[in-house]
Write a protein that binds this DNA or RNA. Structure first.
Lengths: 165, 165
DNA sequence: CATTTACGGATATTTTTTATCCGCAATTAA
DNA sequence: TTAATTGCGGATAAAAAATATCCGTAAATG
């Protein structure tokens, strides 16, 4: 039971994009440079975020990615679901129907209680992630960062941002 | 983010073993037959459960597996952790240290707030599974099963169980 | 029109999951 | 003691998924 590393990258990416002025963008290449992760693979994650409506993409010269939603309306679950999908991690193969003592169809009108218990646990997980907004993440990161680092980040943004026309 | 199918098998297995008389066992082969799953692979899962102290193994003729704990002291989390490990599913690679604006070591005394949020969500998941005891699972399964199916199961157990000497 | 950049698809590599097999050790019953 | 049975651990292999890269195309800019 593992999450792809794209999730970590995507959260950092969104936290960075939230710092941009409205309408401004950062190119995928620049984002990969900022995070120091493989550019073509990050590009794939960005495309998934774009399809999910979490970031907005602008093509062409001076194009790139920006946040498509207000940071307070974007949760860690939104980002996770965009990259990992919403399928449950517990896969019920209806083992209860198997074997010499398998249940008949009529006995399976309710979901298997085992699967139901796992689905409920996953709902707890999902809700916990849904309660964490991007604004919370940004606050946490800002609390740990030195003033010098914040300055460097602002400078880097100024050097790499593509401003709206 | 997926759970191995061994988890499903293992829960069904434990639920079945809980029905055995004290000290009695079922061979791995018989269990695979009951669940209709690949015997050598189920055997691997059983070995892991044995190492975790969830089932007790007895070798030799008339050997097999029995539950090592009382069903009310065994949770779905115990079984899941035995097979999947306790490592978090979110893997923090300390991206915050990366790139041109990476955080200095001194800024990373606290865990990354992103990772912390995921770890907390996983704790919710874990706790939800830990609250479900094997007795609860058995009750749920029994509620759905017809009287005829329960009879067949008891008969099958009688035909396959290895009684203690 | 030339340049830049995201998009989608195809492809390759690595890792994980799923699955099988075998020799050994342990246990029991004859 | 012997023979049969059964779990254990390691090695191996096949299948699937995650990770990573590349390229042609479309779109936007100047």
């Amino acid at each position: 039971m593992k999450l792809g590393k794209g999730v970590e990258w995507a959260v950092h990416t969104c936290a960075l994009l939230a710092l941009l002025p409205a309408g401004a963008t950062l190119a995928a290449e620049a984002l990969a440079d900022f995070l120091d992760v493989p550019a073509p693979y990050l590009a794939k994650q960005l495309q998934a975020l774009s399809r999910a409506g979490i970031v907005s993409a602008r093509r062409g010269a001076a194009g790139g990615y920006g946040l498509a939603r207000l940071p307070e309306t974007l949760s860690l679950w939104d980002i996770t679901a965009a990259l990992e999908g919403k399928a449950p991690s517990f896969r019920c193969t209806e083992v209860r129907r198997n074997g010499p003592c398998g249940a008949a169809a009529a006995e399976c009108s309710k979901p298997c209680p085992i699967a139901a218990a796992f689905y409920e646990a996953e709902a707890s997980y999902r809700n916990a992630l849904a309660r964490v907004r991007l604004t919370d993440v940004i606050q946490g990161v800002a609390r740990d960062a030195s003033a010098a680092r914040k300055d460097r980040i602002n400078q880097w943004i100024a050097d790499n941002v593509a401003l709206p026309t």
